[in-house]
């Protein structure tokens, strides 16, 4: 090292740090990416809301692209997300609702009041399936492809922006 260059070392280290800080301003530190991306959607078999004799399993959707939306009637952010889901349902997107640790009566009431965007709603009363999917905050949405592989996870409500920039382009490709 040349004698003068070595005095530039602190500045150089600092500039690298600043670069990292600038890059990380764009990330949300609370968002934890799922390790399940590009892995098969965990299997389960759960009763259908209001029809406990019927059940649903992810295998039933084999060959179709679908969304698994984790929600609950007690969750405020789900209410914010709801209009977007309705819009998605109108455009023909297949969505399965996973009613997470909820009261079934209240869940049904919520859907009949605000509209039901789901093709089918299943009940995860004790949150076991949610645990297998790594749910840590409701709402969360998984995009699952024809082969039953999870391709994307939306953490938190689906915003118009996320729908436009992430989910719709992905659905088109699948």
């Amino acid at each position: 090292m040349k004698p003068v260059l070595k005095y530039l070392l602190p500045l150089a280290i600092f500039l690298v740090l600043v670069g990292f800080f600038a890059a990380s301003l764009k990330h949300d530190p609370r968002e934890v990416p799922s390790p399940l991306i590009d892995k098969p959607a965990p299997a389960f078999r759960l009763p259908v809301l209001n029809a406990p004799d019927k059940t649903f399993a992810p295998e039933d959707m084999r060959g179709r692209v679908w969304l698994l939306n984790v929600w609950a009637s007690w969750c405020g952010a789900c209410r914010d997300e709801h209009p977007v889901l309705m819009e998605m349902a109108r455009s023909g997107i297949v969505m399965v609702g996973l009613d997470y640790k909820d009261d079934e009566a209240q869940a049904s009431a919520f859907l009949s009041r605000s509209g039901n965007p789901y093709t089918i709603v299943v009940v995860d009363a004790d949150g076991r399936v949610g645990m297998d999917y790594g749910v840590y905050g409701v709402p969360e949405t998984y995009v699952i492809d024809r082969a039953g592989i999870i391709r994307y996870k939306q953490i938190g409500p689906i915003t118009q922006k996320a729908l436009r920039e992430k989910i719709l382009p992905l659905l088109q490709r699948l």
Binding site: V32, P33, S34, P35, L36, D132, Y133, G134
Partner: peptide, 8 residues
């Protein structure tokens, strides 16, 4: 747990 929630 890591399989579900990641190294986080």
């Amino acid at each position: 747990l890591v399989a579900r929630y990641g190294d986080f």
